[in-house]
């Protein structure tokens, strides 16, 4: 039985996708562990693998028409050293896994693995990132929020591949990233948060807040964000409990091997409070 395909280009890859039920694999850092069986035994996949990590069409980083385009097979380590990648996104990436894993792992892999703890996701949600999914005949464009529908579940159809990740080039003067892991080095996330804001003359012009690892998918409350846009920053501190009440229901963490639901919720509270009550003092947050 064929257990792997190594297409020479995207066209061939999409053709295989159309004809064979298979599992796209880029870096393999998640899939190889999830299917590992131990020493001397190859990981067991229920379908053949389609290797996509090497496809040149999936390895671009470019700016076009208001979007930063990142190929899904770009390595995390390549993003860290690329001038187009926003610093605040690099901050999140630099805390992912370990240097050797970042030399294998890809952005597309982190998205398609659709883990609630995926560390690139809060930023991509906050930025309203969009994805291009292609099959041999068509492509479609889908917001990341619609693409990921649950833990390990995506809208990717069996004949499709993720071929592009589009991040609006909007610049946010205020950015804040916080990852809480089990230890400082190489650890999965208990809670993560990406906050982005633009403050003009003391008023909230734009605001994005996304939590990772506290619900089946990344949590972003647009209602809450919208209710704060146009408000004076100076009132956020006194209104915090009211804001939290708006946010709180969407934060539905679980107990697992790494932490507890109660802790995760409490940390979300602390993070959100830290972020919003310090918005006034933009510089401090920017340097965070």
């Amino acid at each position: 039985m064929v257990n792997g395909y190594h297409p020479k280009d995207l066209i061939e890859a999409l053709k295989i996708r159309a004809e064979v039920s298979c599992i796209p694999l880029a870096g393999g850092t998640d899939l190889m562990v999830q299917n590992a069986r131990g020493t001397g035994l190859s990981p067991n996949f229920d379908k053949p693998l389609l290797f996509v990590g090497h496809l040149p069409e999936l390895r671009h980083i470019e700016k076009k028409e208001g979007f930063l385009h990142i190929g899904p097979s770009v390595l995390l380590s390549e993003m860290l050293s690329h001038p187009f990648i926003p610093e605040t996104f690099k901050k999140a990436i630099s805390q992912m896994a370990s240097p050797p894993t970042r030399n294998l792992a890809t952005l597309g892999g982190n998205i398609c693995n659709a883990s609630p703890a995926g560390d690139t996701l809060p930023f991509l949600y906050a930025m309203d990132a969009e994805l291009i999914l292609e099959n041999h005949a068509f492509d479609r464009r889908i917001p990341i929020e619609e693409f990921i529908c649950g833990p390990k579940q995506t809208e990717l159809k069996s004949d499709e591949l993720l071929t592009d990740i589009l991040i609006p080039t909007t610049l946010f003067p205020v950015s804040y990233y916080k990852k809480v892991g089990q230890r400082r080095g190489m650890s999965l996330t208990k809670v993560s948060f990406h906050g982005l804001a633009e403050i003009v003359d003391g008023y909230v012009e734009d605001l994005r807040m996304a939590f990772g690892s506290v619900a089946p998918t990344v949590v972003r409350s647009r209602d809450c964000e919208n209710s704060l846009i146009g408000e004076p920053v100076s009132t956020l501190k006194s209104r915090f409990n009211e804001i939290w009440e708006l946010y709180e229901p969407s934060i539905q963490p679980i107990d697992d091997a790494r932490s507890t639901a109660t802790y995760r919720k409490n940390v979300c509270y602390n993070i959100l409070k830290d972020f919003l009550t310090h918005l006034e003092n933009i510089k401090e947050i920017y340097n965070e």
Partner: peptide, 11 residues
């Protein structure tokens, strides 16, 4: 070792 964490060089 993903869930049971021992100190790394950064810890």
């Amino acid at each position: 070792l993903t869930d049971y964490k021992i100190p790394t060089s950064t810890d």
